[in-house]
């Protein structure tokens, strides 16, 4: 787990990190090779820009090809509107304020569900990782609930909550609970027992041991859980909003379907993609800050 390739944001963080400690490797017994001299910084910066943008080249080419095919009449506008038409729909929705209204509603739901479900999952993960008693009494129940697809609860949730906010909050919280729970539990359980023994031998109290050793040791795994949870969060929210909502991006897409506005449907789908990417980038930035000690997040050495 946790072997992501370095992306542009991390690469940039590394560059500044290296700059902050000039000559750190100048001591004769340093185990690392000396860093390249400063004169290479211009090509390095170019390489940095290239790395930052590389991921966007393919989507851009796809959009260009799509636009060209639409204009040539190969793709019919009733099936798949041209990117320019979608952009126009986006512009109109933005001007009327509907788009931002819907995005804000969806984002608030997603975040609320993530916070509620994530917090519960985190607490259970920590408790069951640290306490054998807690694990014995709750893990079986949690594992059974986990194996019920939470989207299967939608009919029940509608019966309980109607199509109000509670329904979405409940579903999203339930969805994000398990990835966070499982990965937190795994993280706590796989903290190096040598380090825990060291902490005990050095007289750490249980609280100190938790704060200094167990929690930081579990953090990489908790982040994996968070990223899984973000995916589940969007999925759940979109399904819930599509089936039962009066606002939000899912609702916007369903309205587009009812009025045969394919461009609005496409707009909603593209916004999902962008928001998903945004959430991922934010998580990685957070990882870069919290896990800067981790060898995976340190400057690659030539």
């Amino acid at each position: 787990m946790q072997q992501q390739t370095l992306d542009a944001a991390q690469a940039a963080a590394f560059a500044t990190d290296a700059a902050r400690r000039p000559g750190a490797s100048a001591t004769p017994d340093a185990p690392v090779a000396a860093r390249p001299p400063q004169t290479q910084s211009a090509p390095r910066r170019m390489a940095g820009i290239e790395r930052r943008l590389a991921g966007w080249i393919l989507p851009l080419l796809l959009i260009l090809a799509w636009e060209a095919l639409s204009r040539a009449g190969v793709i019919h506008g009733n099936v798949l509107p041209a990117p320019s038409a979608i952009a126009l729909a986006g512009w109109q929705a933005a001007r009327s304020g509907d788009l931002f209204q819907n995005m804000a509603v969806s984002a608030a739901r997603a975040l609320a569900g993530l916070i509620v479900g994530g917090a519960i999952g985190f607490v259970f993960g920590i408790a069951n990782g640290v306490s054998e008693l807690s694990h014995r009494y709750t893990d079986t129940t949690l594992q059974m609930i986990r194996n019920v697809p939470h989207l299967a609860l939608i009919p029940l949730v509608i019966l309980w909550f109607g199509i109000d906010e509670e329904a979405k909050l409940f579903l999203v919280a339930l969805g994000v609970f398990f990835p966070i729970y499982i990965n937190t539990l795994h993280g706590v359980r796989t903290v190096d027992p040598h380090l825990i023994e060291m902490g005990r031998a050095y007289g750490m109290t249980p609280v100190t041991l938790f704060v200094r050793v167990i929690l930081p040791g579990a953090l990489p795994s908790i982040f994996v859980g968070l990223r899984f949870a973000l995916g589940v969060m969007w999925l759940t929210l979109i399904v819930a909003e599509t089936i039962a909502a009066q606002s939000g991006l899912g609702h916007m897409a369903m309205q587009g379907r009812e009025f045969l506005q394919v461009d609005v449907v496409m707009l909603a789908i593209l916004i999902y993609a962008l928001l998903g990417k945004l959430a991922d980038v934010l998580t990685r930035l957070l990882e870069g800050v919290c896990l800067s000690w981790h060898p995976n997040f340190q400057p690659a050495r030539s």
């Binding site: 040598h194 380090l195 023994e197 060291m198 031998a201 040791g217 000690w293 981790h294 060898p295």
Partner: peptide, 15 residues
């Protein structure tokens, strides 16, 4: 009483 182990057992997340 302090102990040194066979492995350094440093906390990787602390400088």
């Amino acid at each position: 009483t302090r102990m040194m182990f066979q492995e350094p057992r440093l906390l990787p997340w602390r400088r």
